[in-house]
Design a protein around this nucleic acid. Structure first.
Lengths: 222, 222
DNA sequence: TATAAAGGTGTCTGTAAGACACTATAGGAG
DNA sequence: CTCCTATAGTGTCTTACAGACACCTTTATA
């Protein structure tokens, strides 16, 4: 088939201040000029799909070594008015601390939008983003991907807030802590976080337990 | 990127005689001449990805209107020695009754192989097949896809045998029936199957309950 | 009519999810 | 210095379901 072009598009999630956000870029050229779109670009010659996604992610956010997973391939013949463009969609999770770096990148018109307050999106990007959110919510419940959105040291309240932001609903504090505790994947640190009133215990992921569990499934039935 | 070609490859599953099988075709040309491969082919101009997969599926098996779902896109630059060929993999489920039709299609050298007795596969098709099996096993436990592998009327023993064939392990008969019964998705028919010793009760999927449940998840925790 | 082969049925125990409310601690204000 | 308040942290009860486990029923055939 001639005139076929392949892109990667990446839904980039973060959680800041208890709100789930996605990175969007404002299009400077037609079609959909002025509308927002998911970051992405064309695949180059010798690149694997994942490397193309990582390159785009780096160009857009200045961030490397983050969680990235292939989502779905969208190939409707009419999805791009310019011709036959098929896109392999990915989603990525980055912590809000790494998020600082974004400013330094070439992301002129890139902005973080709360998932609850998205602008109109170009192409079929709304469908891609919806699907990414669905996947993230599912994976959250049976894997440890969620920890990719937290710094290495975190409190239980921060952990729960991240879960609530993604799932879009409140969780019971005692039940949440019981289940996390039962999994035994957290290492309590000697430090406490002293920001609010009462200092909170800090934890890190216990990497040995984590390695055993992360790809096994059925972990977080919230 | 020039010289990019896009294919669809389809892992086609069926269950016959309590054995999970996949359809493979023998390659008549290099590379990997003489080795078996998953059915597939190039995407045409105006086709959506799913339509391309359905067309290939029909050409290979003579079967339409079956369960088909996109699996993953494999795009390693070296996966095909002839150049850059990216493949969007699908998997399909067809009942053993429809399986008769296969003979009439153009599938000269197409053969069904038990998953436990696969030949060496061309390209990265072993990885694709493994991934398809993993997906099928997962989906089996929280959706009703499994019924796509049974005829419209079936016995509980047939249902359980199908689950066992896919999961690759035995299930307890009483626990299995209890859970199915609790779901309330089966309609007992007035007929009985009279093949063995004692005739067995026939069931069909209760479509109303089925529609409500099929995309909701958390259905079959076996 | 006796037998064999396949179909069909119930209980107990352990684990975990979900609902639910109060106490403890430290920082800041007065 | 002490009182107030915001946030951290903690247990119990009930219900649902998964998993382990063994025998009776039915009909075709010898």
């Amino acid at each position: 088939m001639e005139n076929l072009r392949l892109t990667v598009d990446i839904v980039i999630f973060t959680v800041v201040g208890g709100v789930l956000k996605a990175l969007l870029v404002k299009r400077g050229v037609p079609p959909y000029e002025g509308q927002y779109a998911i970051p992405g670009g064309f695949i180059r010659g010798g690149e694997s799909l994942e490397n193309a996604a990582r390159r785009e992610l780096y160009e857009e956010t200045g961030v490397r070594n983050v969680f990235l997973e292939q989502l779905y391939t969208f190939g409707d013949p009419k999805r791009d008015p310019r011709g036959r463009v098929i896109t392999v969609a990915y989603y990525a999770l980055i912590t809000s601390e790494k998020l600082q770096v974004v400013a330094g990148a070439d992301a002129a018109a890139a902005l973080w939008f709360a998932l609850s307050d998205l602008p109109r999106l170009a192409f079929d990007h709304k469908a891609i983003l919806d699907y990414a959110l669905e996947r993230l919510r599912n994976k959250l419940e049976y894997t440890t991907v969620g920890f990719q959105l937290l710094p290495p040291k975190f409190t239980l309240v921060e952990l729960q807030t991240m879960y609530e932001a993604i799932l879009g609903r409140r969780l019971d504090k005692r039940n949440f802590r019981r289940k996390i505790s039962l999994l035994g994947i957290l290492t309590p640190l000697k430090e406490r976080q002293r920001t609010g009133r009462k200092p909170a215990q800090l934890f890190s992921l216990s990497t040995s337990r984590f390695e055993k569990l992360k790809d096994r499934g059925i972990l977080f039935p919230f």
